[in-house]
């Protein structure tokens, strides 16, 4: 493994953090896609030999700092998500786009459930299943974002 264009990983993660704190109207806040989670899923499926649970955990800590959530909330959620992505990346590569989309929904859903659990510990109650909306919006983004990033990382020869 040579040191190559890995800066793309850092740059996209930074961009996802920006999108995670971008101001939105109050009523749209529930639908904000979980951009860092999307990026973690993508990069782990792309570079499973280099990135894993530790990488996701670090991204999570950065997201906690950026969003002002309790330190460790997103770190825990993304570490769990990273573990499941690592287990399944070989299979998901063979999935067709619709199956991939559904699988991303499940992965981000796991991420949201863990996040919601931490919220519950802190005494913040969420009405019904609203906390799962980001899983849906993130899954719908996947068919656009993944091929784009894959093309970029192929051109930059990221291995």
């Amino acid at each position: 493994m040579q040191a190559n264009n890995r800066w793309l990983v850092a740059a996209t993660i930074f961009l996802s953090l920006l999108l995670a704190v971008m101001p939105l109207p109050q009523q749209w806040l529930w639908f904000r896609p979980a951009f860092p989670a999307l990026l973690v899923i993508f990069w782990i499926s792309q570079l499973p030999q280099a990135l894993g649970v530790g990488f996701a955990w670090l991204v999570g800590i950065l997201e906690d700092l950026a969003t002002g959530a309790s330190l460790g909330t997103h770190a825990l959620a993304l570490a769990v998500l990273a573990y499941f992505s690592l287990l399944t990346y070989q299979r998901t590569r063979a999935f067709n786009p619709l199956q991939q989309l559904l699988w991303v929904f499940v992965l981000v859903g796991i991420n949201q459930v863990v996040g919601n659990w931490v919220h519950g510990l802190e005494g913040k109650t969420v009405p019904g299943l609203t906390f799962l909306w980001p899983a849906l919006t993130t899954a719908l983004l996947w068919p656009w974002v993944a091929p784009m990033l894959r093309g970029m990382s192929r051109r930059l020869d990221i291995r």
Binding site: V53, G54, W57, G60, S70, L71, G72, T73, A75, L76, A79, V80, V118, L121
Partner: peptide, 11 residues
């Protein structure tokens, strides 16, 4: 890392 995160959350 999960345990570490839980400890951080609690702290």
């Amino acid at each position: 890392l999960g345990l570490l995160a839980v400890v951080l959350i609690a702290a």
